[in-house]
Write a protein that binds this DNA or RNA. Structure first.
Length: 573
DNA sequence: GCCGTTTTCGGCCCGACTGTTTTCAGTCG
């Protein structure tokens, strides 16, 4: 069983949890957490890096000791330190720390005094009112524990960005009805356009006498008020989504936006720079002694650190600060750069609108081109098309093109990659198309070797242009295919095949890390919507967000090109 | 446990809110 980066990260995180419960040196604990994050975010497998003879202690936050531990974990799947800790402290306790309000100290007390290890035992102790008498605990804490256990039963911790976006929209509209609010902005991972968000952070500035906190907790969708203060309150909506509101003074708005946009790791890195310069950086501004020297805008906060403004999507401490210091920050792709959609479906297969409707909708978006990419015959559930029906659709497109002067309609198809790596329709049909998107929809559970070979073989076919939703994952629903992404990208770069960034909020496939990786390996991408309806054409913003998180610039994305230029990129034969 | 233009020791990001206290520890972001 090969040990991948997530396995290593998990061992380190577990060590950190158990050390924390034990009450170990907090900085040692952080070292383990930092290392877990570093390893978890690598684009190459640590095991491959070691094999290549790379010195892992060159990675940030990994010293000699942890580099050695990584090696041990790669070889054995675990580490003696973790095994020893497990003898001392039951590992289930780390699970209890996931409950809100339960940290290492409380968990330790509950274990020592009551022998509580699992959620079940915790519930029993709370229901028998044994917790309230412990030192540092009380009746309220006991009730909160029961509430938390209840809330976690459903076990959905993070929300897809699109779902959060919907909830937030109406909440914001409600808040904006309060006329004394001067400005209101969303920060947090939502602003960074992360594919899933754990909670929503809202920042407001107000005029004097504004009862913003009262209005906040009075929202009809609020299920529970977690906390309410002068400057900060937290609620949980009926959907389970947590929303935090912070009131900040105008002069500190930029500093607060910076602080609450995060990521935590990015902030820590920036704050370290502040410390070096003898400044103090917090949510109220940049301070030299007691003097606030910046804070009104994010730009001026960064400027004090001799840094340029960072787009929120870049703020993950994945090398953006070093890149900025060298003047190498990317000029990120924007929605306006997109000239057309290369993957939309129609009623001919599983879309919900006619060819005419989809083309018209794309035209109304101001696109220069739109590609009709319906399913091929293998996908019977979607009424996939055989050669005959495809040719008929091409004829229809020709007729419609005669009437539509404003937009170029591209003939495409989402062709299935069969189990043996061949394509679902013959080359002699595929060659009549402008290009193809080729995707895996069946036999999702092949071994890593077979699955990788399958996709690579498909790329041998000169009529394959774009690899559709490369990993095949569905967020929260389906794991990604077991693919050697590095090999896939190497081959794609060599064979001039493009990778799709599928914008559907359930897919967002490629993910952010793979987007960045594609760029590093010289693979170009296409941001598409995979639209099955007219409204789906608007999903492009999610794909663009993902691409921005992956540092992509207009030049990395093929559908920023005019059709005239793009056309040449599709000729592989 | 990591790290170094204050470099091999002694630091390590910082503030709000809660529930428990009666001045603060724990937790969270």
């Amino acid at each position: 069983m090969p040990v991948n980066n997530n396995d290593i990260a998990e061992v380190f995180n577990k060590i950190a949890d158990l050390l924390e419960i034990k009450g170990d040196n907090p900085f040692r604990i952080r070292a383990y957490r930092d290392a877990a994050r570093t390893i978890g975010g690598l684009s190459k497998d640590a095991s491959d890096l070691t094999e290549e003879g790379k010195d892992l202690s060159e990675l940030p936050g990994i010293g000699k000791d942890l580099a050695g531990k990584v090696k041990t974990i790669i070889q054995t799947g675990t580490h003696p330190l973790l095994e020893d800790l497990k003898q001392e402290i039951p590992e289930e306790l780390s699970g209890l720390m996931k409950l809100q309000g339960m940290g290492p100290k409380k968990v330790a007390v509950l274990y020592k005094k009551l022998g509580v290890k699992t959620a079940e035992e915790l519930r029993k102790a709370a229901e028998e009112q044994k917790i309230r008498d412990l030192e540092g605990f009380g009746e309220t804490t006991e009730e909160n524990i029961i509430d938390e256990l209840e809330r976690h039963k459903g076990e959905q911790k993070r929300f897809k960005l699109s779902v959060a976006e919907q909830r937030v929209k109406s909440f914001l509209k409600y808040m904006k009805e309060e006329k004394k609010i001067k400005s209101i902005e969303i920060a947090g991972s939502f602003r960074r356009r992360k594919e899933t968000v754990g909670d929503i952070d809202i920042l407001v500035t107000c005029k004097r006498g504004c009862q913003v906190m009262d209005r906040f907790i009075d929202y009809e969708d609020v299920e529970k008020v977690i906390s309410k203060g002068e400057t900060r309150s937290s609620v949980i909506l009926k959907s389970g989504l947590q929303v935090d509101l912070r009131k900040v003074p105008q002069v500190a708005f930029g500093a607060a936006m910076h602080y609450f946009t995060g990521s935590k790791e990015h902030n820590i890195a920036v704050r370290k720079i502040a410390v070096k310069k003898n400044y103090k950086l917090n949510e109220y501004g940049v301070f030299r002694g007691d003097d606030r020297i910046a804070g009104k805008t994010e730009k001026e906060v960064y400027a004090k650190m001799d840094l340029p403004y960072f787009e929120p999507e870049l703020r993950e401490n994945r090398g953006e600060i070093k890149a900025a210091q060298k003047g190498n920050l990317p000029e990120l792709i924007t929605l306006e750069d997109i000239r057309g959609d290369l993957h939309v479906h129609t009623k001919a297969t599983d879309g919900h609108y006619s060819l005419e409707d989809m083309v018209k909708a794309a035209e109304n978006k101001g696109y220069e081109y739109v590609a009709v990419s319906d399913h091929s015959q293998k996908v019977t559930v979607a009424n996939g098309m055989d050669a005959k029906r495809l040719r008929k659709q091409m004829e229809k497109i020709d007729q419609l093109q005669d009437k539509s002067k404003k937009i170029k309609i591209l003939k495409s198809m989402e062709v299935d990659i069969l189990e043996d790596g061949s394509l679902d329709l013959a080359d002699e049909v595929l060659k009549e198309l402008d290009f193809t998107v080729c995707s895996v929809h069946y036999n999702l559970n092949l071994s890593r070797k077979k699955q990788t070979e399958r996709v690579i073989k498909a790329m041998d076919n000169p009529f394959m242009n774009i690899l559709g939703h490369p990993s095949g994952r569905l967020i929260h629903e389906r794991k990604p295919l077991d693919l050697d992404m590095e090999k896939i990208m190497e081959t794609a770069a060599e064979k001039k095949v493009f990778l799709e960034i599928n914008s559907h909020p359930d897919r967002l496939d490629l993910n952010d890390i793979h987007c960045k990786w594609a760029k590093e390996m010289g693979v170009k991408t296409a941001i598409t919507t995979d639209a099955h309806s007219i409204d789906d054409l608007d999903l492009m913003r999610f794909g663009v967000g993902q691409a921005r998180r992956g540092w992509l610039e207009p030049g990395d994305i093929i559908n920023t090109l005019s059709w005239k230029k793009l056309k040449k990129h599709f000729k592989r034969h």
